[in-house]
Simulated assay, not measured.
Amino acid sequence: MKKLLFIALFIAAPLTQALEVVTIDMNKVFENYYRTLIENKKLAKEKDITESRLKEMQAQVYKLQNDYQTLMRESMNPVLSEGARTQKKQDAEAKATEGQAALKNLKFFQQNLQKEAVGKRRTITAELTKDIQKVVDKYAVDNKVDLVLDASGKSVNGVNLVIYSKNSLSITDKILAKINKGHEDFVNKIMNEKKAETDKATK
């Protein structure tokens, strides 16, 4: 009987060693990481500059199109001499050529702008995620955690991978505190600015 009891306890022993599992909202951590906030401000500034340049190029195209139309109308003005009308038509053709070149440059600029923006965002995201991963890994080792689940992750069907978990299992705030240590004032400043913008937009 004792032998059977010992065997039963031996078999059940591994099952009593509970797996240490925690969850983290990686989206929240990433979006509130001070380095992410810094990069977002840089990207926003760059976007303003490129949009300004884009508007200038668009205005140039519109102007050339209007100049072409004006010159074409003038080239058909019977009041003008034949020589003057011919000159107007030649000027119009020159504007048309210039306009086509400007339009081509505009499209090229737009295409490259989009590619560069996507590529830069992907590079930044990978770099910052790597930073966060290091902090999470160290936390897991220091606290003897066996498994860390991303509560913000979704399946291919758009369903949350973590259907339910206790709030006490979340280490989101702990990781945020670690990665933002020494930068709390900056983070709070950005958060307050965002809140003010949101409040203003909803009024």
Rank of each mutant, 00 (worst) to 15 (best):
S75R: 07
D173L: 01
K194Q: 15
R85G: 10
N40W: 01
Q60W: 00
M72V: 11
K144T: 13
A151C: 02
N188T: 15
N105W: 00
K89N: 13
K195V: 07
M26S: 11
V79D: 14
R35A: 05
D142M: 02
E197K: 13
K194N: 15
V145M: 03
K47V: 01
I124E: 03
T86N: 12
V156G: 03
A102C: 06
R73S: 13
L169C: 04
K88D: 10
E82P: 02
T198P: 00
K95R: 14
L43I: 10
M57H: 07
G153E: 11
D48P: 00
Y62R: 12
E127C: 00
E20L: 00
K138S: 15
Q100W: 01
G153N: 07
T36W: 02
L80P: 12
M57K: 14
N77M: 04
L9T: 15
D173P: 09
N32M: 03
V29F: 03
V156C: 00
D173N: 15
K95F: 06
K47F: 08
F30C: 03
I132N: 09
K166H: 10
A94K: 13
S168P: 05
L37T: 07
E31C: 00
K41P: 03
L19M: 13
T198F: 04
D185T: 14
E39R: 08
L19V: 15
Y139C: 06
V135I: 11
L71P: 09
D142A: 08
P78K: 04
I38K: 11
